[in-house]
Design a binder for these strands. Structure first.
Length: 279
DNA sequence: ACAGGATCCTGGGGGC
DNA sequence: TGCCCCCAGGATCCTG
């Protein structure tokens, strides 16, 4: 679920309440999360949160020494809550914070998310290197981005979903960015022009920055770190709007499946082949 | 190298 | 009410 803007919102929400707070106790549920490589979270009691950062869709928590790494998967929620607020179903990890007793809670209905522990910052960085995690969208260098697109016959939608090319884009913002750029999601990377590549790069940045301003998109399960919903879902140009008119040209939007994911686009504004004159 | 499918999970919604 | 099927902001693994 959560893509870069949602994860960024969670991180921003959690920073103020969390930084400087010590872990008084840790509760871990029985159910397995997707990747928790022997994370002995109980060993974190007594540690203090020194900082919280985002990298792609990953949440990195600095515990002055060890780092906690959290991925929200499709339905993960990472929230700061008063202790008396009832814990919802599917809450898998709870950090109680001293001295107030508030809680940092990890909830994840489908359990595609993960909570793992790294002994040092270097170990965390090594993990990202091993993942070949791509740059943040705003760090994309135009020339290397273009080169990267030209190097593959994969379709743009698949390239955008691949975290190795650019980190943080998921199904919603891939579709939204392609619409802003006026590019067909099934256009092979090798076929883009330099101008199109640049248009797409700028569209990604624009779409994600706007989504961050709106605290991300709350459809189904997403909430920010404070439990507040996002507003970006009200401004989707194509995502989930199959059959509805394109906001730019009124043509009914279409839905296809690419890279195994539902893909929304305007058949008129986002043409595959070059537009041919009709007379 | 890539597409496509299955897999990990739970729940909501629609059709009957 | 229940059942069955499809769908879902992610990512990985396997096959062809």
């Amino acid at each position: 679920m959560p893509e870069l803007p949602e994860v960024e919102t969670v991180v921003r929400d959690l920073r103020a309440p969390l930084v400087g707070r010590a872990i008084a106790s840790v509760l871990v549920g029985d159910k397995k999360l997707r990747r928790s490589p022997g994370a002995n979270l109980e060993a974190l009691v007594g540690r203090t949160f020194h900082g919280i950062e985002r990298r792609g869709k990953w949440i990195c928590l600095d515990l002055a020494g060890p780092w906690l790494l959290v991925h929200l998967g499709m339905t993960g929620q990472f929230t700061f809550a008063a202790a008396q607020l009832p814990r919802e179903d599917h809450t898998h990890v709870v950090f109680t914070l001293g001295p107030g007793g508030e809680e940092l809670r990890f909830r994840d209905i489908r359990r595609f998310g993960s909570v793992s522990l790294y002994a040092t910052r270097a170990d965390l960085d090594a993990f990202f290197v091993k993942q070949l995690l791509g740059p943040e969208p705003w760090d994309l260098e135009p020339a290397s981005w273009f080169k990267r697109l030209k190097a593959t016959s994969r379709v743009l939608k698949a390239i955008l979903l691949d975290q190795r090319t650019v980190a943080g884009v998921g199904n919603i913002y891939a579709d939204e960015s392609l619409h802003v750029a006026g590019l067909h999601p099934a256009l092979p990377g090798k076929d883009v022009t330099r101008a199109q590549a640049e248009k797409l790069r700028l569209a990604i940045v624009e779409v994600l920055e706007h989504a961050i301003e709106l605290r991300g998109s709350s459809i189904r399960n997403y909430v920010g770190g404070s439990g507040l919903m996002g507003k970006m879902q009200n401004e989707f140009r194509v995502y989930g709007r199959t059959g509805e008119p394109c906001l730019r040209c009124t043509q009914p939007l279409e839905r296809i499946v690419l890279a195994g994911r539902s893909t929304h686009f305007c058949p008129r504004c986002q043409r595959l082949a070059k537009r041919r004159s009709t007379h």
